[in-house]
């Protein structure tokens, strides 16, 4: 039988071979019963593959010993993704979500030292494999982007806030503003911000976190029996940001989204305003007031920072 793992480890190269062999066993998807698949990819018994790597003991076969790691790996990464994606779970249901998660992690296993980054490529995978989320692929893609944005907002950097004093001596023609690194700007095909809030509310109710304990009990059974209504398609612009450590979502008008996106791309303030307001439909004084309100609001929220 072709050797699957080296017979000895007497060099770094052979150490790498052994680790690759064990990793192939550990990372292979589990079967429907959440056990190690009994046949290897080439049809031979997985037990024969495992026996080249591990020793049996008086209680467990080599396969059973490696199966402990195989199960722990999948339980750990699936649990992590499960926690990070409440919106996707609500749309797909737990079973379809788990199928999606397993297929995703099989194609895109973690390339980071931290589990935080596990969902980073999920939106891309959903677009690559639409059958796993059909007929809600576009909604699921938006949700994956939105849920990843929440992770980014939670612990990305914050720089010193830009103040009015920083405008002193600034040339209005050349002025460039900077957005906080944590601020995420999303253009979506679905209003998933509202959907996520509904999901969160439902989960809190099902955990009995309602302040009214009398109402909480019947709410649990209602909440478990219904998922929030899926949102209708509607172009939506959202800023995901944080304030005092708490994550918030803020709807943006399309023009405001364009201005902020242009600022993020390094355009001057003048260019950013031109990008957002190319052909103003509103009367000029009204428009000036609206834009002034936006900027005041964004300043208050601390979205602008020093370079």
């Amino acid at each position: 039988m072709r050797r699957f793992a080296p017979a000895r480890v007497d060099s770094t190269a052979r150490l790498a071979q052994l680790q690759r062999a064990m990793w192939r066993v550990v990372s292979r998807p589990l079967n429907a019963a959440s056990r190690t698949q009994r046949r290897w990819t080439d049809g031979r018994p997985t037990a024969a593959v495992a026996a080249q790597i591990a020793k049996p003991n008086d209680r467990l076969t080599a396969l059973e010993r490696l199966e402990i790691y195989n199960r722990m790996y999948w339980f750990r990464v699936l649990d992590s993704l499960y926690d990070d994606c409440p919106g996707l779970r609500a749309v797909l249901g737990d079973s379809r979500f788990m199928n999606l998660a397993e297929a995703y992690l099989d194609k895109y296993p973690s390339r980071s030292f931290t589990l935080r980054n596990l969902p980073a490529r999920l939106a891309r995978f959903i677009r690559e494999q639409p059958r796993l989320t059909a007929p809600h692929t576009a909604l699921c893609s938006d949700l994956a982007r939105f849920e990843w944005a929440r992770i980014e907002v939670f612990d990305s950097a914050a720089r010193p806030v830009f103040t009015i004093d920083d405008l002193l001596d600034a040339n209005p023609k050349k002025l460039r503003l900077n957005l906080q690194p944590y601020l995420q700007l999303l253009q979506l095909d679905y209003p998933v911000d509202d959907f996520i809030l509904a999901v969160k509310q439902r989960e809190e109710m099902s955990r009995g976190e309602s302040s009214n304990t009398v109402l909480a009990a019947p709410a649990v059974s209602r909440a478990k029996s219904r998922r929030p209504r899926l949102p209708p398609r509607a172009r939506t612009h959202v800023a995901v940001h944080r304030l005092n450590g708490v994550i918030y979502f803020k709807r943006l008008e399309p023009a405001a989204y364009k201005i902020l996106t242009a600022i993020r791309r390094g355009r001057t303030l003048e260019q950013a305003l031109a990008a957002g307001l190319p052909r103003a439909k509103r009367p000029r004084p009204e428009l000036a007031r609206v834009v002034q309100d936006w900027f005041q609001n964004w300043m208050r929220l601390g979205w602008f920072c020093r370079a």
């Binding site: 550990v26 990372s27 790996y73």
Partner: peptide, 12 residues
Amino acid sequence: GSVDGTYSHDLL
């Protein structure tokens, strides 16, 4: 716990 840049997030 890592092989060729892929992470297991386990202590193997």
